[in-house]
Design a protein around this nucleic acid. Sequence first.
DNA 1: TACTTGTTGACTGTCGACAATTACTTTTGG
DNA 2: CCAAAAGTAATTGTCGACAGTCAACAAGTA
Lengths: 209, 209
Amino acid sequence: MLEHVSLPEAVGRELRHRILNNELPAETRLVEANLAAEFGVSRGTIRDAMRSLQAEGLIAIVPRRYSVVTRMSQEDAEDVCYARYVLENAAVSNGLWEQRSELVAGLREALTEMTAAAEANDMDAIVELDTRFHQLMLDTSGRRRLKDLWSMLNSQMGALMRSEIERQGIDLAEAVERHRVLADAVEAGDSVKFREALRLHYVEGFPGL
Amino acid sequence: MLEHVSLPEAVGRELRHRILNNELPAETRLVEANLAAEFGVSRGTIRDAMRSLQAEGLIAIVPRRYSVVTRMSQEDAEDVCYARYVLENAAVSNGLWEQRSELVAGLREALTEMTAAAEANDMDAIVELDTRFHQLMLDTSGRRRLKDLWSMLNSQMGALMRSEIERQGIDLAEAVERHRVLADAVEAGDSVKFREALRLHYVEGFPGL
DNA sequence: TACTTGTTGACTGTCGACAATTACTTTTGG
DNA sequence: CCAAAAGTAATTGTCGACAGTCAACAAGTA
């Protein structure tokens, strides 16, 4: 079954993709009329899409002025990672350890694909799989708001990971390994070990990958 | 200095107010054209405002169908409270205890006003002061994302408090007292006591007031 | 020169109209 | 009498145009 994708949503996806891939680097100004012409839609549609991106923290809208792609400072990076850490940490304190068998299966599958993506140096896949991996944990917690809030941060996290990886040339294999430690901790049902691994994942190893 | 209030923002405020005051009860359908006529603005403006309310979780927009005021279940209430608890708990673990003198002053002031509002049975003021009280703590933490996420939940929290207070006739004086315990814990610099008080505040005493 | 006061151009804010979609009602064929 | 099809009413989705706002520059004043 096909799902409806409204124009604003489609535009939003495209713009998000461009921002995350640095085709629209930080500080780039987004002019409604230009984008409208490029995509062949009305300005209202672009406007709508830009609101979403603003909510995700990818762009900043200065009323009556301009919209601009957000530049993330080192401090911002730390801030996003910390927030994500807090949410995930809280999520695993809730019902995760009871019904974790299927969760583990999902995590293992994601890990397998992630390993392959790391070998192929496929950045897109890595970022997407990282999202899936962590989201699985949030889903299992059954806390809807925690998951919603986490999702809000996700785009910013994606932007962060890409830029960090490209800039500092992070070792993808090591990143995958860190996820494996998390999955191991979940499988072992060791919440203390898990928390420590999560802390390392986000607070120490920087871009949370 | 004056600040600009765009039409969508003004409309959003009014609608938010109506929802929080149950003038627009849960399940009410919001029809763009009707609201546009009532406020004397265009439908696009209403649309914009409704997007904000959706982001705040106050209404649900079903694409191409309708928009409807959200009904919160008991489960939702618990869920929102828990998320708020998680965020505040994390916030106080960061830099709050170092520079807490001015924070305490702010909390005390809010408490004083809250006491007066409770005696006057002024619901609007109570809800607003509760927001201020808790936001002060978030602000002091210096973690921007935690604060942003917390803000997202705030409207839902307001809706919750009102409905709970009206339904169950919660003792306002006791609610104020619980805030006082929190302020005391901050002043004493006792993080253990604070955490416990916060847990009681949200997880036990229900609508987090 | 420094400081204020138009003026201009580029852009966003807002609007009313039309198109598309959905839900509801009526008709039609068995 | 019922089910499928066709038609209709209600509502959202999208658009192009015009009005409002701001930054930057030009012109005028001491």
